[in-house]
């Protein structure tokens, strides 16, 4: 793994699961939609598959849940939804993130002017 890739991976590690929760806070999404949204926004268009283990853990931890729905065409879709635990975790993370981000920005000199 190149240094750049390692850096990106490290930066995503603690944050990406909250991006999942935030996307599902807007509306429920099925797997393909969800990973395509995420990978598009975070520049991971060649590693969509790496998000399934993350979704699996969030499901095991009760932060998201899934429900099958028939689709107008093609196979039924499994929709991911946010649970109340997931909502609470997202709210908590938003507070932590703002504080963390401001601290890092102050040190790096990258505050938005």
């Amino acid at each position: 793994m190149s240094d750049d890739a390692a850096l990106t991976t490290a930066l995503r590690r603690g944050t990406i699961e909250y991006c999942v929760l935030a996307l599902l806070d807007k509306r429920e999404l099925y797997g393909v939609e969800l990973v395509q949204h995420l990978s598009g926004a975070l520049g991971m268009s060649t590693s969509e598959g790496t998000m399934y283990p993350l979704l699996s853990r969030l499901r095991r931890n009760g932060r998201i849940a899934t429900t099958w729905r028939e689709a107008p065409a093609g196979p039924p879709r499994r929709y991911y939804t946010l649970t109340s635990d997931g909502e609470a975790a997202l709210t908590h993370f938003r507070t932590e993130w703002v504080a963390f981000r401001s601290g890092v920005d102050r040190i790096l000199g990258t505050e938005s002017k």
């Binding site: 590693s47 969509e48 598959g49 790496t50 399934y52 283990p53 993350l54």
Partner: peptide, 16 residues
């Protein structure tokens, strides 16, 4: 290709 190579996917599973 968009899913990514199997080893990276399993590596991600290992960390979860």
């Amino acid at each position: 290709d968009r899913l990514g190579d199997p080893e990276s996917i399993v590596a991600a599973a290992d960390t979860q």
